[in-house]
Design a protein around this nucleic acid. Structure first.
Lengths: 349, 349
DNA sequence: CGAAATTCTTGGAGCGCTCCAAAAAATGGT
DNA sequence: ACCATTTTTTGGAGCGCTCCAAGAATTTCG
């Protein structure tokens, strides 16, 4: 690989001049410039190597996005929520002319990735592990934590998951529902986990803190209607598990309303309902979470706890780009009532 | 920002030792290691700056993705097709442990971006401009061109757009349709352009070469049924233009079948049809393109010319990651018949 | 025509790191 | 206690570039 110096030698000029030819051509006499360009072409030199500049100038002009927990980038891109989040981030990156690096932080490589990533700042999905934050702080780059409050010194953005969950339950109890199933998120790979009432280990503090918060919101909402979450079956599935619907219908046939933690899960339920000839909302009501674009397109359109996912991504990017004093932002959620919920009317079959 | 040397001085050891503490801790005596770690902590040194390593070792461990034409990353992320493409790329990146950099190549910064991007290879969306390719070649990094054949020396992946378009028309003419509208893609920002039959400038070679190819396929398919594309209105809209449906219905009310160039456009049509009380496929048949996941979820589910978008993205990434001799891949397409097409049955209204 | 003003070109310094050959220190055997 | 080994540590070289002050060449103008 030829370097500036090689080209300079070939053209009989100094490194500096060759550099100028590529970066500030107006500074160099046309005749000389042409000679340099010819030499560069002859040597197959395609412009200054960005590595050199980088060391000198020190800006990557990129921000990094790292998914929470052990999720891979592809898993993020597969979920409706993840796609909108990345879209929001990319919106801000476009505006700022910044590159968006999707950094893989699989398990044990997570901290190494943070140490090594070629970025000027981070958006970090956060599952609750403390190591992540110290790791990020060490790097001394602006960063923002998603879906977790990491204290007053650290940028964070989360949604008000609890209120959302409460609103979802209120809506359903208001409609007259008394028999629920909760579809929660399993944050480790593996098959669905079914927690029936009365079992010992209830997963009330098992997942990401956002999950716990929402579970707590469900609990509160149920309590308001004199119902106990301890009597409600909770099923945990990985975010896109296609069997979620089957597992719910098989294990909780008496449920007239299903609370989920993402639109994706709710969509899965809808699909399984169609397969089984179960009608939504006539036989069972289903409520999503996130309010992604997809939730409006399903049949029937989903009632869902909506948040501004795109706005969240965009804000996250802005926060690392702007590098202002740390803020802890809690974004509101809003129940969007569409057609997947109704008063319990018919028994299945 | 402290450096290796600073830490070394503070701990009374050499740069090299500090480097080892961070990169090959097993090489340094535990006692010394602790001293160094303490010094690092005291100075707030969070590990070797990746910039330095980079210059020394020269691998970014990242591949770049640049959208075609003047599209921004966010525009890619907005489209169902773009999302699946990026998903496919990220799948391969995950497997390879590589970072995926979404590089903005807006118009005039496009070539500069190629020169400067901190990546080991490129996936380049290609609109047909020759400068792009020379620019990429200059960088001497592996790259692959999407949706264009750039000759035998250059990696490229495209779909067989012509066959797909022909298949779409055949399906529709086979159903008995004689009155078409074509929804083509406007590749510059702006409002829809309506080309009615008989007008001078027909857009048969206006857009990306993929668009031209598909238009040509439509032409051929129509010709097989003794129909001339010159009699078919062609409307060009930007990919996600929400007014596309309205423009089509307003300008070509007599069409019983609408050919589009993406699922996204077809979905837009479906939405507008609902708004106007037009029934698909009873009043009008609509056919999509790409076969994205979204196309299966619409009401009614879309008949579409499907391609393996995820596979394409993945293959593209593999090609730049593997850096084998150049290949030109043409991916097959397949007509997936669902419920948005039927024999023309009812006149609208 | 020559000095002053202007335009171009030069090359040293330094960005932070890792590699590596060689020096230093520790260990082991006799 | 000494020498041969083995384990640790060292510091020079160099990765490719841009900046910048200073020097060289060219132009301008009285």
């Amino acid at each position: 690989m030829p370097t500036l110096a090689d080209v300079g030698k070939a053209a009989g000029v100094s490194r500096g001049t060759v550099s100028n030819v590529f970066n500030r051509p107006e500074l160099v006499r046309p005749e000389l410039r042409q000679r340099v360009e010819a030499a560069a072409r002859a040597l197959g030199f395609g412009g200054p190597d960005p590595k050199g500049r980088l060391l000198r100038d020190g800006k990557f002009n990129a921000i990094g996005f790292m998914p929470p927990g052990a999720y891979a980038i592809a898993e993020v891109m597969r979920s409706p929520y993840g796609r909108e989040l990345v879209l929001g981030v990319s919106l801000a990156c476009d505006e700022a002319g910044t590159t968006l690096s999707l950094v893989n932080g699989t398990d044990n490589t997570r901290f190494a990735s943070i140490r090594e990533a070629l970025v000027d700042g981070f958006i970090l999905g956060h599952s609750g592990d403390i190591g992540l934050i110290t790791s990020a702080q060490r790097r001394r780059l602006p960063f923002v934590i998603l879906e977790n409050d990491a204290g007053p010194d650290i940028n964070s953005i989360k949604i008000d998951g609890r209120s959302g969950a409460v609103a979802a339950v209120r809506h359903l109890t208001g409609l007259g529902h008394r028999h629920f199933a909760i579809l929660s998120i399993r944050r480790t790979p593996g098959p669905p986990i079914v927690h029936m009432p009365g079992q010992a280990e209830r997963p009330l503090l098992a997942g990401f803190s956002l999950d716990d918060e929402r579970l707590d919101g469900f609990k509160q909402g149920l309590a308001e209607a004199n119902l106990s979450i301890d009597d409600v079956p909770i099923i945990e599935t990985t975010p896109g598990d296609p069997s979620a619907g089957a597992v719910v219908f098989d294990n909780v046939p008496e449920a007239t309303a299903i609370l989920t933690m993402s639109d994706w899960q709710a969509i899965t339920i809808l699909d399984e309902a169609v397969r089984r000839g179960i009608e939504v909302p006539r036989h069972v009501s289903v409520i999503g979470f996130d309010g992604t674009a997809e939730s409006a397109r399903t049949t029937p359109p989903l009632t869902t706890v909506a948040q501004d996912v795109i706005g969240k991504g965009r804000l996250a990017a802005r926060m690392v780009l702007d590098n202002q004093p740390p803020r802890q932002v809690v974004l509101p959620v809003e129940l969007v009532v569409r057609a997947s919920t109704a008063a319990p009317r018919a028994k299945i079959r």
